[in-house]
């Protein structure tokens, strides 16, 4: 078993439950702190796996370009809450697999917060964006789902609305909710819902019209320059 996989198991089975147990005994609004720490703990095994792989320069640059595009996707489209952020992350996940997808998402979130301002939501955002990459990577790995535009679009829409969006709303809940009852949390999730649908719709449109065109670009660069291979194609 790889070192990063061992770390992943230790994190999931020991460290995170321990954090939660310890956190329950802390007073005040420690659930915010707790959730942020757990979000960071989820990042650790992914980062370790990436570090341990000692990626080649060409892979590094490609990942950096994709992560920068995540930020650009937030800047370049002039319509509010209609940003193809998740589409970019998911395409990276589909093209390069779940692990790289996670790195692209997490790094994209951290990087864009350097421009939009870091906040208490940054660890959550890194985790949620990273998960978007993992989800798409897992869904389309080894031909599980057909890489057709509409399949990718629908998958991305469903993931955004049902998983990534609510995950981000949960960070809002841990920051501003005063009581963890459904009655109290529902308004926050409901107010987040239209935004999530818009985001999902934007991802759908991006993938529906450009999905395979962009994937082809990534694949072309991959084969033309031998990127993401274990040895550089030089």
């Amino acid at each position: 078993m790889k070192k990063s996989q061992i770390v992943m198991f230790v994190m999931l089975l020991a460290v995170i439950p321990a954090t939660l147990l310890l956190g329950m005994r802390l007073p005040g609004r420690s659930y915010y702190l707790l959730s942020a720490v757990v979000a960071l703990e989820i990042l650790v095994p992914f980062f370790m796996a990436f570090e341990g792989r000692r990626p080649r320069p060409r892979e590094l640059v490609t990942v950096a370009v994709m992560a920068a595009l995540v930020t650009i996707a937030r800047v370049a489209v002039p319509l509010p809450s209609f940003k193809p952020t998740f589409a970019v992350i998911m395409l990276a996940g589909i093209a390069f697999g779940p692990e790289t997808g996670f790195i692209v998402g997490a790094l994209g979130a951290l990087g864009s917060d350097f421009f939009y301002g870091q906040g208490p939501f940054t660890p959550w955002q890194m985790m949620a964006y990273g998960m978007a990459g993992v989800l798409s990577g897992l869904g389309f790995a080894e031909g599980r789902l057909a890489r057709k535009n509409w399949v990718m679009g629908v998958y991305c829409f469903v993931c955004t609305v049902l998983f990534i969006g609510p995950l981000l709303d949960t960070s809002t809940v841990t920051i501003i909710a005063t009581k963890f009852t459904w009655e109290n949390m529902l308004p926050i999730y409901l107010s987040g819902f239209p935004v999530n649908v818009m985001q999902g719709l934007c991802s759908f449109i991006t993938l529906f019209f450009f999905g395979n065109a962009i994937l082809e670009k990534l694949e072309r660069v991959k084969t033309q320059y031998g990127m993401m291979e274990s040895e550089d194609g030089i």
Partner: peptide
Amino acid sequence: PTISLLLLMVLRLV
């Protein structure tokens, strides 16, 4: 180191 370098590249690319 690798993640930091990546972040540096992202911040330059944006």
